[in-house]
């Protein structure tokens, strides 16, 4: 009985239209950045922090989109970022890796609903066949934008995707589930969130970097959205008491400590 594909007529269109992929790009502190807070623990202390493209967006989602384009050069890849002007260097890097054009929505927000609404507003007008997000951002760990976007656009959503292919106009997807993996088939348009396995990290080459300078980067004003959540404050976890070292000659002592003191085994 399953599945029921409501949009069967779209199949006809695919043979005639160019496929468009929207890749959502977020900016995060470098993975080695020191995590500290300012203004009475209400703000991330960004002084001296190196900003990078969120690794899930760069390594997995964007590179997979580029690979699809390499297999089918008619595909066009649009990048989208919701962020202030500080996002431009990471957007240029994504263009250097292989995006065709980019949109920045000039809005700095930590509310997932706001960010997703901004992206959905653009996506609605763009007729995208595929929307790629990362599994999560490595700073706020929301894992929410992909699902929210799918709902706002009334599209299917597959999360934690490790493999993505297109076979006769259907998306064939492998996704991670708890303790295993699952193969899914879905019609496009479709939203997916990407993680490890999708592709391998790439380094932009000179030609890409030069080309990125002249690729279009459009800046749009945000639409009015009421935020559903806000950050009140941040805390750092309590410092560890320090490691208790056990002699390599006496591993029985470790087993005793784990059993009696930590009650872990």
């Amino acid at each position: 009985m399953l599945p029921i594909i409501e949009d069967w007529w779209l199949f006809f269109n695919y043979n005639f239209t160019i496929m468009k992929i929207l890749v959502c790009i977020s900016k995060t502190p470098d993975t080695t950045a020191k995590i500290a807070f300012a203004d009475n623990n209400t703000k991330f202390a960004s002084d001296g922090v190196q900003w990078i493209i969120n690794p899930y967006d760069e390594w997995y989602s964007l590179v997979r989109a580029i690979e699809l384009k390499e297999a089918d050069p008619t595909i066009s890849i649009h990048l989208i970022n919701v962020g202030g002007p500080e996002s431009e260097p990471i957007i240029r890097k994504a263009l250097a890796l292989g995006g065709d054009e980019a949109i920045r929505i000039n809005c700095d927000s930590n509310d997932s609903f706001n960010v997703a609404s901004q992206i959905a507003n653009v996506a609605k007008q763009g007729n995208y066949d595929l929307i790629f997000t990362g599994k999560e951002t490595i700073d706020f760990n929301g894992s929410s934008i992909g699902g929210m976007l799918a709902e706002l656009l009334d599209l299917p959503f597959v999360s934690h995707v490790t493999k993505f292919n297109i076979e006769t106009n259907m998306a064939v997807i492998i996704r991670e589930i708890d303790g295993g993996e699952e193969t899914n088939k879905a019609a496009m348009p479709l939203v997916i969130s990407c993680q490890k396995g999708m592709a391998e990290q790439r380094i932009p080459n000179m030609k890409g970097i030069m080309g990125a300078r002249t690729k279009p980067l459009k800046v749009l004003d945000p639409v009015d959205v009421v935020s559903l959540t806000s950050i009140v404050s941040f805390d750092l976890p309590p410092a560890k008491a320090g490691v208790k070292l056990v002699s390599p000659e006496n591993p029985e002592e470790l087993v005793r400590l784990l059993h009696e003191e930590a009650k872990a085994i």
Binding site: I35, F140, L228, T229, S230, I231, F234, D235, L236, P237
Partner: peptide, 9 residues
């Protein structure tokens, strides 16, 4: 590496 306290409105 840290915690955030989030208010739901």
């Amino acid at each position: 590496k840290a915690f955030a306290n989030i208010k739901i409105h």
